Structure formats: structure tokens, C-alpha cells
Simulated assay, not measured.
Amino acid sequence: MYGRIIVAVDLEHVDQAKTLVKRAGTLLDAGGEMRLVHVLEEVPSFIAAQLPRDTQERRRAEAMVELKALTDPAAGLRVVEDVRYGAASGQIMQAAEDSNADLIMIASHKPGLGDYFIGSTAARVVRHATCSVLIQR
């Protein structure tokens, strides 16, 4: 069905991530690529100055390990782990553009009052993505 799928992964919600990855595996064409994208928030410079120099690299390495654990190598899928820094919605859409994705898959929580004023990451991706978006609840 899809040759290149971006799966937006929030590592704070691993169960949702596992569900998304499993579903993406069923939608992926043979020989297709699944890209697991996790976005780390940038640490403000005034805080980063107080942290050990390797903090960002350790955060990235930990995220890569957690992303790799979401897939089963025996499944034979081509999976790429991608950890980025910045605003989640923008980085997810940039990953889709960079890889020429056919589909972005993202989990969403049930909207609350705050989502009507600010907008959730999933809502921003749906509004601005240039490819199809699948929202998993």
C-alpha cells in the first residue's frame, strides 16, 4: 500500500508506539521503508550551560535504543530510526519531506480544551502535511 511510512513515536507512550509500528508493518509495501521518528525538545541554552556536555548525546543514544526495541528484526522490515531535535510537528513533517514519505502515522490523545486554543502535534501535522496522515487513537 505504502512505500515509505513515517511513524511518529512518543517514547513516553510506548504502548501506543508499539501499536503504530505493528500497524505500519501491515501497511508497508514489500521492500518499503518504515522510518521511526522521535523528536527531543531542545534544551534552552541557559539550562544546557548547567548540564554535562554529553547530556544531549546521551538523550539521543537512549532514544535510539528505545526506537530499535520497538521492532522485531526477524520481521524482515526495512526500519530506520531517526531522532531529531526541535518542535515535534515541524520535525515530523520535515522527516516526511526528507524521505519522500507516502504516509505519516501518529498517535493522538482525546482532545481537551487546550487543544482548541493551542493545537496538538497530531492536529498540526494533519493541517500541514503534504502526504496522507493516519491518526491512531
Rank of each mutant, 00 (worst) to 15 (best):
M1F: 07
Y2T: 09
Y2Q: 09
Y2G: 05
G3F: 06
G3S: 14
G3W: 01
R4T: 15
I5S: 13
I6K: 07
V7K: 07
A8L: 15
A8W: 00
V9F: 08
V9D: 02
V9S: 02
L11E: 07
L11H: 03
E12C: 01
H13M: 12
V14I: 11
V14D: 00
D15A: 15
Q16W: 12
A17I: 10
A17S: 12
T19E: 15
T19I: 06
K22C: 05
K22G: 07
R23C: 09
A24C: 08
A24I: 09
T26K: 04
L27E: 04
L27D: 04
L28M: 07
D29Y: 00
D29H: 13
E33R: 15
R35W: 00
R35T: 15
L36C: 06
V37Q: 03
V37F: 03
H38F: 05
V39I: 06
E41D: 10
V43H: 06
P44V: 09
P44W: 07
F46I: 13
I47Y: 13
I47W: 08
I47V: 15
A48R: 14
Q50S: 12
Q50H: 14
R53L: 14
D54N: 14
D54E: 14
T55I: 08
R58E: 15
A63N: 01
M64G: 08
V65M: 08
V65H: 08
E66Y: 00
E66M: 12
L67E: 03
L67T: 03
L70K: 12
T71A: 11
D72F: 03
D72W: 02
D72I: 03
P73W: 05
A75Y: 04
L77C: 02
L77G: 02
R78A: 07
V79R: 01
V80K: 08
V80Q: 07
E81V: 08
D82I: 05
V83W: 00
V83S: 03
R84N: 01
R84D: 00
R84K: 03
S89V: 01
S89D: 12
Q91M: 12
Q91Y: 02
Q91L: 11
I92C: 05
I92T: 07
Q94W: 02
Q94Y: 02
A96E: 10
E97T: 09
E97I: 13
E97Y: 05
E97W: 08
E97R: 12
D98K: 02
D98W: 02
D102R: 01
L103N: 03
I104R: 03
I106S: 05
I106P: 13
S108P: 01
K110D: 14
P111W: 04
G112H: 06
G112T: 08
D115W: 03
D115A: 15
D115N: 14
Y116P: 00
Y116F: 15
F117C: 01
F117E: 01
I118Y: 09
G119C: 14
G119F: 05
S120C: 15
S120E: 04
S120R: 06
S120I: 14
S120K: 10
A122W: 07
V125E: 09
R127L: 10
R127G: 13
T130L: 07
C131T: 06
S132F: 00
S132E: 14
I135F: 10
I135S: 11
Q136N: 14
R137I: 01
R137D: 04
